[in-house]
Simulated assay, not measured.
Amino acid sequence: MTENAPRRRAPGMSPEQRREMIVQTALPLVAEHGTAVTTAQIARAAGIGEATIFRVFADKDELLDACVAAALRTEHVVAEVAEIPMDQPLAGRLAEVAAALDAYLARMGAVIGALHSTGRQGRGAHGGGRAADAGLDRDTAQRQLVEAVAELFQPERSELRLEPEAIASIFLGMLFTRTRRKEDGPALDDFLEVFLHGALTA
C-alpha cells in the first residue's frame, strides 16, 4: 500500500452489536454502583463517547433495563454447560455445572440486588421494566438448560434409573435448592455423593 492510498476502515458495529457491547461493559459497573452508575463511567469503560450510548439507548433507564434483561438471560450458562469436557468422571462434569450455575446466579443477584438497594423499584418483577419481563421466557430457558445437562449423563445412560432428561431435571432442582441455602447447606462434594449414590451407605 502506498503512502497516499486511502486507508480501509474497520467495519462498524451494527446498532444491536453496539447495544450488546455497551450492556456487557455496563454490567459489572451496575453490579458495583447500582443506579448511581453514570453513563459517563460506562462510556469511559467501553472506550466510546457518552453520546454513542444515547444513539442506541433512549436514556439511562433503558440501558439499566437492558442490563437487567442481560443478567437474567441463561444462554451463556447453557453454552458453558455444553462445553464441559466429557472425558472426566460424571461427578466432575456435574461439579462444573454447579460452578456455572453459581456464577450465573451470583452475577444476576449482584446486578438486580445493586439496583434494588439503590432505589430502583416498581419496574417489573426484576427491576428491568416491561421489556425485560417480556423477554424472560422461563420455560424455554429451563428446557434448554435441562437438555444441556442431560447430555452430560449420556455416557452413563445404561446405568441410569430414569431417562437423562428426568435425571437432569431432578439434579437441577436439587442444585437450585442447594445454591439458595449454600451457607447452611451441604458441601458440593457431599451433595454430589448423595445425588449420585443415595443417602444410604449400604
Results as ranks from 00 to 15, higher is better:
T2R: 13
R7P: 12
P15K: 07
R19W: 10
M21I: 09
I22Q: 00
V23R: 07
Q24A: 14
A26K: 03
A26P: 00
V30C: 07
G34L: 04
V37P: 00
T38I: 01
A40N: 02
A40L: 09
A40W: 03
Q41K: 07
A43C: 07
R44C: 06
E50M: 09
R55F: 03
F57P: 01
K60P: 03
L64N: 02
V68I: 06
A69Y: 05
A70V: 05
A71K: 05
L72R: 03
T74V: 11
V78M: 03
E80Y: 05
V81H: 02
A82P: 01
A82L: 08
M86D: 14
M86A: 15
D87F: 07
Q88A: 14
L90Y: 07
G92Y: 08
L94H: 04
L94K: 08
A95N: 02
A100W: 13
A100T: 14
M108G: 13
V111I: 12
L115G: 04
R123D: 02
R130G: 13
A131Q: 06
D133F: 04
G135N: 10
G135P: 01
G135Y: 07
G135L: 01
D139F: 10
R143K: 11
A150S: 03
S158R: 14
R161G: 08
I167E: 11
A168Y: 04
I170V: 12
G173K: 02
M174F: 12
F176H: 08
F176D: 04
T177S: 09
D189C: 02
F191W: 10
F195T: 08
H197T: 14
H197Y: 15
H197E: 13
G198H: 11
G198A: 13
L200H: 15
T201P: 06
T201I: 15
